[in-house]
């Protein structure tokens, strides 16, 4: 069903939705820049400051310095945060308060084109962050392997997965109060999705829960690439993220249609 819908999408109209966002953010560069700084600050504080106390942590049979271990995770977190804030907070504002989508859907633009446009913008934005962050990691000497360059497209995939899931989630939110739940989800993933510690450090009962989070799969990919530990399991992790993209898009397009065209 999604594929037949996708075939009818006009890239030009979805592109117009992206254009609108570009236009708005040409002026709001401070907000854009802050999305880049936040994970950098976490990296400097927890990776390097706290990292000095942590020393080395085990990874794939050897031990790596904590900042090297943490940096690729922050890359994944950044992709998640950028995607989720854009598709939850910003999209919700446009949906409920600015009535922007009512106006957009009075034109030939369809709900799916609208969703794809918003996600496309979100990816462009998070791709920009990821690229800059990855460059910074390399500068700081936190990318031991040349494979790290592939962490960029990986970060974009992570962004896509969370953008699609975020769009879907937003269609279920009722008021700003509900954003507390979004924040909880983001925070719990940030803290417990294998970002700060290897999976082995979690108690056995918690590990399957950790493995359920999309962020865990994202972190595993970026960390493996950054440290040069490639294996076939990575394809599985990537497949999980692709699954999230499809599920999110499908739900988002259906629900947006139902919300805006009752």
């Amino acid at each position: 069903m999604l594929t037949t819908l996708l075939l009818r999408v006009s890239p030009r109209r979805a592109g117009a939705v992206v254009e609108r966002n570009v236009l708005v953010h040409r002026r709001g560069w401070v907000v854009l820049a802050s999305g880049f700084f936040e994970p950098l600050l976490y990296l400097l504080s927890l990776g390097i400051g706290l990292g000095a106390l942590v020393g080395r942590v085990p990874f794939a049979g050897e031990s790596v310095a904590y900042p090297v271990f943490l940096a690729p995770a922050m890359l994944a977190v950044q992709a998640m945060n950028a995607a989720l804030t854009e598709t939850t907070f910003n999209v919700f504002g446009k949906l409920k308060y600015m009535r922007l989508y009512d106006a957009v859907l009075a034109t030939p633009v369809t709900p799916l084109e609208l969703a794809l446009g918003e996600i496309g913008w979100c990816l462009a934005r998070s791709g920009l962050y990821s690229g800059a962050f990855l460059g910074l990691m390399a500068l700081l000497g936190l990318t031991p392997s040349g494979w790290a360059i592939l962490a960029w497209p990986a970060a974009v995939l992570i962004g896509f997965a969370f953008a699609a899931l975020g769009m879907a989630l937003t269609t279920f939110l009722r008021s700003w109060q509900d954003f507390d739940y979004v924040m909880i989800i983001m925070m719990v993933m940030f803290m417990f999705a294998g970002t700060f510690t290897p999976l082995g450090a979690y108690p056995a009962w918690a590990r399957p829960l950790v493995e359920l989070t999309p962020l865990y799969h994202g972190v595993t990919i970026t960390r493996g690439l950054s440290l040069g530990h490639l294996d076939l399991a990575m394809l599985g992790h990537a497949a999980y993220l692709v699954g999230c993209c499809i599920l999110g898009l499908w739900v988002a397009a259906r629900r947006l249609g139902r919300l805006l065209q009752p």
Binding site: L46, L50, V54, V57, M191, F192, T197, A201
Partner: peptide, 8 residues
């Protein structure tokens, strides 16, 4: 941070 990273 406390329990997770604290162990190390």
């Amino acid at each position: 941070i406390g329990l997770g990273v604290g162990g190390y």
